[in-house]
Design a protein around this nucleic acid. Structure first.
Lengths: 194, 194
DNA sequence: AAATGACCATATTCGTAAAATGGTCAGAAT
DNA sequence: ATTCTGACCATTTTACGAATATGGTCATTT
């Protein structure tokens, strides 16, 4: 390839920089430098910094969708699938540098773009869960309920069990998380007896 | 009363000021002024600003404990009591100016003392739920489980249903909150059938 | 003995000058 | 002709010292 694909260079450089330094600390000069490209060139592909950021987010979103699709086994029960997909997604999220950097930036500086980016990624997860819940209700595996409410609660519960709880007690192991997840969402706490 | 109770004056003034202006924007000069007291006088009762703040928090905590005790009916089922107490506490929390001001201050400035104050108040709610869960497990009303985990999840769930969800859809009404709360925690989502 | 407010060291805010950044565009490179 | 570029511009962000405000003390007053 005599003539390099400048668009790809820019995207790759931007992905690197946003992951490494976050939104605010990524400058267009820097992206140009990393991409070995004049700054003006970036603006022939993306109209501004936010749109470039969007492109990178979009890549991540596609990755996430693939991960989710890959984990689904249509022959298995809903709660099994849910568990496996959330597991894979949160694993991905906790290892992906872009997530880490954006979360840190949100905490530390409250950069609106970092916040929005995280929201976009979260909403992908949410709408994914929502669709699966609808499907499961259709199959009669899950009681009739508002899928939006349920999906938000599910994700929140998962985050509480996997991370927030760790500030208050030693972390739950994978098996415990699994069983509490089932206990709360599937079976219920109430002791049916006497 | 010829000689006024300066300690009470200080406490009252501090409560007013912290509620009205938050932690950071409350100055010792101001408290002294409101209390009609010399600044030095405050330091004869409280060794510093943080300890004065603690005193005010403590008052609120006592109020909260009273509210909780008042809502408990030992003859009613656990989930009824839980529902009523959380309702009353979150109602109290959402109307108490000190809460509102501290939450705002935390969001806006990240004042560590505001954060710590809110954490203290939350931990009171948590340990209250924890105790009740333990009691309910003892009675066999609730399946055996770690009360710490369960209490955190319960509070979180309640907050999601009552406030966080409102960013994504129109708010649930009281009846809906009640029924989702039961659905998730008590009965479980799983359709037991065929 | 209790209360006070002027006082002190430190922290915060403010104004401004300097530096950095997002975005443009006339011209260079191909 | 088309693509690419980096000097350039307007605006934003930072750096920093001066001025102000604040938490806390203590010699003096009540």
């Amino acid at each position: 390839m005599a003539v390099v694909d400048r668009r790809q260079q820019v995207i790759k450089a931007a992905a690197k920089s946003f992951s490494l330094f976050g939104y605010k600390a990524t400058t267009m000069d820097q992206v140009a430098k990393i991409a070995n490209v004049g700054k003006g060139t970036i603006y022939t592909f993306f109209s501004n910094k936010e749109q470039l950021f969007d492109e990178i987010l979009h890549t991540v979103i596609l990755e996430m969708k693939n991960i989710a699709e890959r984990e689904i086994r249509r022959d298995k029960p809903f709660f099994d699938n849910l568990q496996r997909v959330l597991d894979a997604l949160l694993e991905f999220r906790s290892e992906h540098e872009l997530f880490i950097k954006l979360s840190q930036e949100k905490r530390e500086f409250g950069t609106p773009q970092a916040q929005e980016g995280l929201d976009k990624l979260e909403s992908v997860i949410l709408s994914y869960i929502e669709r699966e819940v609808e499907y499961a209700i259709g199959l009669g595996e899950v009681k009739p309920c508002d899928p939006k409410v349920v999906s938000v609660v599910m994700l929140k519960l998962y985050i509480v069990l996997t991370s927030e709880l760790n500030k208050l007690r030693e972390p739950l192991d994978k098996e415990q998380i699994k069983s509490y997840f089932r206990l709360f969402l599937a079976e219920g706490l109430e002791q049916k007896q006497s």
